[in-house]
Design a protein around this nucleic acid. Structure first.
Lengths: 207, 207, 207, 207
DNA sequence: TATGAATGAGTATTCATTCAT
DNA sequence: TATGAATGAATACTCATTCAT
């Protein structure tokens, strides 16, 4: 009997994930407003009613989706950074991991870049209560890395750690945006070197 | 009689601009989808029907608004850059002008950062036919500046002009985003020096 | 110009009343839940959207309808009672007026008897905030009449005025219910005499 | 084996009654439309599917519930009346029994007063085929009692037996309604005397 | 037999757009 | 020309019912 219960439990989680995956795809393709619940349901091969067994509404489904991916991203980024101890290596690994995740969660990347500053994200609790604290963990970690780099004499001592953090994240995001919007001119991956060099040349003490 | 016609003509343009200004405010506050035509009409102190005398629909009103501001931005940015001949000075003036325009067109800045990658912007012709070509003009100009800087031996010869263009624009945008989303941690204006230094230190030949 | 404004204003009120009348008919026929907004709209010969210009929703439309009729009923019942000074005559006029109003507002009578104790009526503010205070005015008036009748030695001094009020109202309602539910066995109107006699025989001092 | 079959049979009836009891409670609390099958199932501590083993649908469950209670009420009312032979005593026992049943079947009383004239009750066969014939049995019995009272010279000979029947039932119902809707002003039970006196004073020959 | 996950038809509500005045 | 009342297509959400396990 626990066997059956486990299977059912696993199936339920599986179905929930199928719905989230379908939603991610459709939201990425059409944006939040142009996506109908019917769209998601048929993509997931469920009836609309079934979606409402798992999520109270379209809005909450969207939020859970964003939250889930943000948690994954934070976890994977921090895990990757924790494998290194040298500030330079940590930052390189941050950039590298963002690229990997961009490819791994391509639909989400599109969704995120789409909605990042849309009304869904900025106004609601989604940003302030869910995403921002997760971002903040990564930002705080990066800020710390810059501080350590300065202390260890690796980075110039006139840089402001927080500003460098913002700059680094937006630079990587910016190349991501560009590769989505000018896909012919710029492949994100190939620019790894450009970013790293630009950034380190600006930051490092002795070049 | 031409007098009358002129006054009417002027009044018409005036009304059109009032509508566009109202729309900009409301779109910036609520986003495209949550803004109703009624919202815009009452903000502009016109009847809804009147809006349809000036624009064929909500979508087109939005597009004209974006287009108008993009043209203005391009014009003002290029005009500011054209006042200088030294590559370094041109780039500094680009950054400086973005900050000025951000303040001057604050509503639009909010609207733009909001919608930049939303479905309205990316999917439709709005981006590909209207905004992208205008962006491209500025980008092409910047790329040219970097090329000249390299040729004149001011910038390192291993940088890729186009990449630097993208990096520069996204770095400034990134700080703009941040100042909107973490207004307490970061005032855009005060970061001018940070950006300039970071960028030039990474790019310049002799530091 | 005030002429035009007046006509428009009058037309608007007219349309609102047309919607309320249509709603009353359909609610009386099908009950609240089985009535769709589309039903009301097509009965009123308007589009659904138009209904929402006048009322925030189906629920509120229903409430306004009940409220309007309850106010009318109170006004007409009290006005009729105020034409008399003799307690017996006042009570006869109360009964008589209820019969008249039952015929005049037949749709509402059906609606009211239908919903009187349904969940719409009893749970919500509709009863406690809207209808009950109006009922109470009439009940208080009746109670007063019974008191005066006792004081004037017309009614037995062992009756309890409030109980008589309740009894009288429910007796008349009861015959109304019956005439709706057993239309063949009982016509409400023809029972005027029965009610009056039953009631006065039970209440009057000297028969 | 018949033992087992009997137990199973008994269990089945037990479960059916548990479902009906749960349904009665929830319907009384929320009304027919606002009650979901899920509500009933969880109140009865069964799965929804199980309910459909016992009843073809929500509507039929509701009807069976009403029917069952109406039959019980008829049986208990008629049984109580049959214990007496004197017309006055029979009528007193009718009133008294209604009070007892109102307390005994409080949930049903709430449900009945709620739905009595709602669309479920009046439109469908529920009223005309199920409840009305049962009511009619009691009404016919009461009518007969009034006839006998007249014949025996106990009641005035100018009363109409059927009208008195209707009046009596509605008077008791009316006080029931009131005690539900103005619970502070009127406790049904305490009004027994009032009702009896009012009614008998109106009906009896020599007062 | 009992379960409860899945179904999908049905409905209230919104809002861009039209057009008679 | 300007108005704003009227329109109705589009869509999120509910819940009675089914059926595979």
């Amino acid at each position: 009997m626990p066997e059956t219960s486990n299977r059912k439990e696993r199936e339920k989680i599986q179905h929930r994930n199928e719905i989230l995956d379908a939603a991610e795809e459709v939201f990425a393709e059409k944006g939040f407003h142009r996506t109908t619940v019917e769209d998601i349901a048929s993509r997931a091969e469920f009836a609309v009613g079934t979606l409402y067994k798992f999520f109270p509404g379209k809005e909450e489904l969207y939020q859970k989706l964003i939250e889930m991916r943000c948690v994954q991203l934070r976890d994977e980024v921090l895990a990757a950074m924790d494998k290194h101890s040298d500030p330079g290596a940590i930052i390189k690994s941050f950039i590298d991991t963002k690229i990997q995740l961009f490819k791994k969660y391509y639909s989400f990347a599109r969704l995120y870049t789409r909605e990042r500053l849309g009304d869904r994200f900025t106004d609601s609790d989604l940003w302030w209560k869910i995403a921002a604290p997760l971002f903040d963990e990564v930002y705080t970690r990066l800020e710390q890395v810059f501080k350590e780099g300065i202390e260890q004499g690796l980075f110039r001592d006139d840089i402001i750690p927080w500003d460098m953090t913002i700059a680094l994240d937006n630079l990587t995001d910016g190349f991501m945006f560009q590769s989505l919007m000018f896909p012919d001119k710029l492949s994100f991956e190939s620019k790894f070197e450009t970013m790293v060099r630009l950034f380190f040349d600006g930051v490092s003490k002795n070049k």
